[in-house]
Simulated scan of single mutants.
Amino acid sequence: MREVKVELGERAYPIRIGAGLLQDGAALSALVTGQHVLIVTDGNVAPHYLAQVQQALAGKTTNAVILPPGEQEKTLARFGDILAALAALGASRDATVVALGGGVVGDLAGFAAACWMRGVRFVQLPTTLLAMVDSSVGGKTAVDLPSGKNLVGAFHQPAAVIADTRTLDTLPLRELRAGLAEVVKYGAIADAEFFAWLEGHAEALIARDPEALAEAIAVSCRQKAGVVARDETEQGERMLLNFGHTFGHAIETEQGYGGLLHGEAIAVGMVLAAKLSTQLGRAPAADADRLAALLVRLGLPIALPPGLGAPALLQRMRLDKKAVSGALRLILWRGLGQADVVRDVPDTEILSLLR
């Protein structure tokens, strides 16, 4: 097992990465300090792992919410369903909400935990690669609105993140590829050596080589844990983790959360951010080409889906959480491993790129 710690003083917590961790009933039970437990999962994950987690928590008063899968379910209505389940459980202030699933489940469960009785304990059991390396770490919780992604939410740190890499065995290949986009992001924004390592292990990662996946997850989590410890509420450095996300979220929203997967949209968004950096004279074209080539090897899209208009995408980008008074702040780069927050990029440059 590998362990990474998110250093947040009294709220510090571990990220444990390894095979078979969901089978360690004693360790899971130790994370639940009160009597009431609500497990939030979805219809894809529940048949594989819900009974296992429920057995680990035998002796507690538990209930489960099984949501339909998909980004389109990350809504205020589903958030309300989880709150209703907490009420039906009689959950008190020492209750624990357990998120068993991918990023949608984690975001919904975490937001409910942040709001129930003004904040209760929360444990992340991510079962997708994307959730393991990104959404389960750092305490960002949210729901989507038709007008934009993650616009309603709260910062609420988990008590622990338990990433059982065996759950990746049942992950559809498309979802695995989508998670690798977020792994590539860490190399792109801060670690050129890790990016080169990914270039050398692309096929092993797609083949689900256990050692390669565990290393990629651990490196990604170490990077994110360090950034979160230094900038928990995204006032500065943490914004760099959104490389490709302003473009990617606009794509997801414009498609009604029913087109590209999140990681796929982020792959396209990273390529757009790299190309814009080159267009603005900030970065070499060769690095943008390397990024695109690696994403293609990982089976990810690198071009805008058809039917998305440039003006509509730009309008979606203006609702990005990094924007200030409607003015965009983009995460661009100076090349591999060197990302920056950039203000005042002319609309004409962005529209030219999107067209």
Rank of each mutant, 00 (worst) to 15 (best):
residue 90 G to Q: 04
residue 344 D to I: 07
residue 203 E to L: 12
residue 258 G to Y: 01
residue 354 L to A: 08
residue 196 A to V: 13
residue 50 L to W: 02
residue 182 E to D: 13
residue 175 E to C: 04
residue 313 L to Q: 03
residue 263 G to P: 09
residue 209 D to S: 04
residue 345 V to T: 06
residue 145 L to D: 02
residue 285 A to I: 05
residue 64 A to F: 03
residue 36 H to C: 07
residue 315 Q to T: 12
residue 311 P to Y: 13
residue 148 G to W: 06
residue 334 R to N: 14
residue 208 R to I: 10
residue 257 Y to L: 06
residue 22 L to K: 11
residue 49 Y to M: 12
residue 225 A to E: 09
residue 22 L to V: 10
residue 216 A to C: 10
residue 32 V to P: 00
residue 315 Q to Y: 02
residue 164 D to W: 13
residue 157 Q to N: 15
residue 223 Q to F: 15
residue 350 I to N: 02
residue 297 R to A: 03
residue 104 V to Y: 03
residue 325 S to R: 10
residue 18 G to Q: 14
residue 146 P to K: 01
residue 342 V to K: 01
residue 122 F to E: 04
residue 103 G to D: 04
residue 92 S to Q: 15
residue 133 V to L: 09
residue 3 E to T: 15
residue 232 E to H: 06
residue 127 T to E: 08
residue 16 R to V: 12
residue 72 Q to R: 14
residue 260 L to T: 08
residue 216 A to V: 09
residue 91 A to Q: 05
residue 234 E to W: 09
residue 246 T to D: 14
residue 25 G to Q: 10
residue 30 A to W: 01
residue 82 I to W: 09
residue 147 S to E: 15
residue 251 I to Q: 10
residue 111 F to Y: 13
residue 77 A to P: 02
residue 279 Q to I: 02
residue 310 A to E: 07
residue 233 T to P: 00
residue 53 V to H: 13
residue 103 G to N: 04
residue 336 L to V: 07
residue 270 M to F: 10
residue 276 L to A: 11
residue 290 R to A: 11
residue 325 S to P: 00
residue 327 A to S: 14
residue 35 Q to G: 05
residue 321 K to Q: 14
residue 293 A to F: 08
residue 17 I to Y: 12
residue 321 K to D: 12
